[in-house]
């Protein structure tokens, strides 16, 4: 039995998780930076937040009753993609533990970790993954030794679109849950641009149009309802095509926006029409967290993908389709 400690710090969340090779989470702690109303995630301020809470979180992990710090076999950190300054905080903590505990250091891709933890908790074998959060929106499936990106946003991610819209509407960050709540109060559809280009989608035009219509006097609830219907519609349509194209029979929803019930409902209807099983990642590991980094670290440790300190620079633009995946046939 091996134990891995994982550190997540790509954006607004600093998380530390400890997991064993049976997939049991032994400890999971996190602190999330919350921007002031009317603002977004300021990278430097978020990094300062992470620095401030790093010692506290490490202490909490150290004092856990489930294991001893010296039982930990590996330390993994999210090496990218993400905000450079934030990623560096996680990297510094990881390198320190690597040296003080004298255990191997593992660099994990954040997107890959979202998929792998989803597969673990849902017991999915070979799904089409809908990975959507504040920083990413991609439709991903495994083929020929790598995760392939079948469709992705050509500009901003859905979570970001929802956040910026709600900021314009003077709602508190994060915007997704507020938009979802308001959308439930309406069923009046306001026309908005629906942009699917082949397998890719775009949300910036939708965002601009929605803000303009809101300012022109449309009701906030109606706009929230319409934004969800249009943007999720685009996402589900592309997922459906990826599913048809690859002939896979599972759909896995993961990432922060996975918590949205309307998106879950739409994907479920679509998956069932194609005879596929729909899975959604459990809430405890849906958003950014350390456990997913730890779990992916364990998978990589089986193939001795260890880093020397001078190879452990953060990779803010690291794509999932650059990585060879040896643990899937």
């Amino acid at each position: 039995m091996k134990i891995c400690l994982g550190i997540e710090s790509t954006a607004h969340t600093l998380g530390i998780g400890v997991i064993n090779s049976e997939g049991k989470i032994l400890k999971q702690v996190q602190k999330t930076f919350i921007p002031e109303i009317g603002g977004g995630i300021h990278p430097r301020k978020a990094a300062e937040h992470h620095f401030k809470y790093a010692r506290e979180l490490i202490k909490e992990v150290k004092n856990s009753n489930n294991f001893n710090l010296k039982d930990i076999n590996y330390v993994a950190f999210s090496q990218g993609p993400g905000l450079g300054v934030c990623l560096r905080v996680g990297a510094v903590i990881a390198r320190t533990l690597h040296q003080t505990l004298n255990i191997p250091l593992i660099g994990v891709n954040h997107c890959l970790a979202h998929l792998e933890i989803g597969k673990l908790f849902c017991d999915a074998k070979d799904p089409i993954c809908v990975y959507t959060s504040g920083g990413n929106t991609q439709i991903i499936g495994f083929d020929g030794g790598r995760y392939r990106v079948f469709g992705e946003t050509l500009d901003i991610p859905i979570g970001n679109m929802l956040d910026v819209f709600s900021r314009e509407a003077h709602l508190q960050h994060p915007g997704g849950p507020k938009v979802e709540k308001l959308a439930k109060l309406s069923n009046k559809f306001v026309e908005l641009p629906y942009t699917v280009k082949g397998m890719d989608f775009s949300f910036s035009g939708l965002l601009t149009a929605a803000i303009n219509k809101l300012e022109a006097g449309e009701k906030l609830e109606d706009m929230c309802f319409s934004i969800q219907e249009v943007s999720f519609g685009m996402l589900v349509e592309v997922t459906e095509r990826a599913l048809a194209h690859t002939e896979k029979n599972e759909v896995l929803l993961t990432g922060g926006v996975a918590a949205n019930l309307r998106l879950q409902e739409m994907l479920k209807i679509m998956a069932e029409e194609h005879g596929a099983t729909f899975y959604v990642v459990p809430k405890q590991v849906a958003g950014d967290n350390g456990a997913m980094i730890a779990w992916t670290g364990l998978l990589q440790a089986n193939y001795r993908q260890f880093l020397k300190i001078d190879e452990s620079n953060v990779l803010p633009k690291w794509r999932i389709d650059e990585i060879e995946i040896p643990w899937i046939n």
Partner: peptide, 11 residues
Amino acid sequence: KAYRIEELDFQ
């Protein structure tokens, strides 16, 4: 498409 609302779907 049952996952889309009628108006958007038909359009």
